[in-house]
Nucleic acid binder design. Structure first.
Lengths: 180, 180
DNA sequence: TCAACCTGTTTGGGTTGCCAAACTTTAAGG
DNA sequence: CCTTAAAGTTTGGCAACCCAAACAGGTTGA
C-alpha cells in the first residue's frame, strides 16, 4: 500500500494550480493580473495570495513587473496550460460521456484536474476524439442517450444497490486477473 | 470562481479516507486491525495514526474495543464502503475504457477516489454496466481496441499538439453553449 | 492638498497532517 | 516474576494554507 501519498507530492498543489490558472485567465481576459485580482477571483484574502505567490515566484513560476503586474514564466505557462487542458478534458468527459450536469461536471473536474496523470489526460483526449468521429454510430449514441435519460430521471443516492453489486463484481475481476 | 475550495471541505479528507478503508481492509483480510497495523499498511508512523484515529473516534467513525482492536461505526463503514466503491469504479473506467495500464489506473484512482461526487460515481457505474452489456458490438469494441493500441504504442508527452488543439475546440464549444 | 480608498505585505493565529523521539502500557517468554 | 519487545500515546517541530488585522504606499476626487 505504498504510494497512497503521491497525492500531496504533485508538481503543483491544488491551491497553486488555481493561482496559476487564475493568473492566466486574468491575463487572457483583462490583459493584466494583480494580487488583489487573483484574490477576488479565488475568493481568498490578498494576504494569502501575496504569500502564496511569493512562493511561486521563488519557484520561478510567476513573475512580476515594475508595476506589480503579474505574469507567468515559461514554466508557469506550461503548467497552467496543462492543468487547464486537463480540466476541459475531464469536464467534457464527465458531461458528454457520462451525462453529468454541467455545473456538477465543472465542480468535479475542478477538484481532480491537477491530480490526473498526463498519461490519463492524453488517453481522455484520444478517447473523446475517437468518439466524436463516430458518435453517429447507432449503438454508441443510443448508449449515451439511454444513460443520460436514466441519469436525469433517477433520484440518485450513492451507493445504489446496483452500484454496490456491480463494483463487487468488478473488484473480483480485478483481483482475479491480478492472481494470474 | 467560487467553489474551487470545495476541494478540502469534503466529508472526509484523503488521509481520513485511507485510514478508514485501511481498517476495513485489515478487518476483511485478517479479522482485526490495530493502530500499528494501520500505520504499517499506510507507511506512516504509529504516532500519526494514533492522532488521526483519535479524531476519527471523536467523529464517531472509528471505534475501539477493550483490547485496542479497531472497528468502524455504521457511519464509518458507510463512508469506507463508498470510497472503496468509487475507487473500483474509477479504476475500472480508466483501465477498461481508456486503456490506462493497471498500475497507473490504480494510482490515479487512488488520488481522486474521495473527490468524485456520488452522482458521478453512480453515472460511472451505469456507464460501465451498459458498456459491458454491448461490448461485443462492433463499432464500440473496435473503438476501444484502437484506443488501447494507440495508447500502448505512443510515447506520450502531455499535452500533445493534438490534445491542445482538441481541448481548445472543446472549450470553445463549452463557452458557446454557455452563452445561449 | 489631503482624506478616503485601493493595493500589497507582514505577522500572529488556527487547522491538518506528517515525523521523531520520549514515555507508558501491554504482552510474552524464559 | 521479571526482562524485553512490541504497541499505543504524547509532545515539539515543520510545512501548507487559510484568515484577520495592522501597516505602508499610491491614486484620486473634492
Amino acid at each position: 500500500m505504498t504510494g497512497w501519498r503521491e497525492f500531496d507530492q504533485n508538481p503543483v498543489s491544488h491551491s497553486a494550480a488555481h493561482h496559476l490558472t487564475t493568473i492566466q485567465f486574468l491575463l487572457d481576459e483583462f490583459g493584466y493580473a494583480r494580487v488583489s485580482d487573483v484574490a477576488r477571483h479565488l475568493g481568498i484574502t490578498r494576504g494569502s495570495v501575496s504569500v502564496t505567490l511569493k512562493g511561486l515566484r521563488q519557484r520561478g513560476l510567476v513573475v512580476e513587473d515594475e508595476h506589480k503586474h503579474l505574469g507567468l514564466s515559461e514554466e508557469g505557462i506550461r503548467i497552467a496550460r496543462g492543468i487547464h487542458i486537463k480540466r476541459i478534458l475531464v469536464q467534457t468527459m464527465l458531461r458528454d460521456v457520462l451525462g453529468i450536469p454541467d455545473d456538477l461536471a465543472e465542480q468535479d473536474a475542478c477538484k481532480i484536474e491537477h491530480l490526473v496523470s498526463d498519461y490519463t489526460a492524453e488517453a481522455i483526449s484520444k478517447f473523446l476524439q475517437k468518439l466524436s468521429g463516430i458518435e453517429s454510430a447507432e449503438s454508441i449514441s443510443k448508449l449515451f442517450d439511454d444513460l443520460k435519460k436514466e441519469m436525469a430521471a433517477a433520484e440518485i443516492s450513492f451507493p445504489s444497490e446496483e452500484a454496490q453489486k456491480f463494483s463487487d463484481r468488478l473488484e473480483q475481476r480485478l483481483t482475479e486477473e491480478e492472481d494470474q
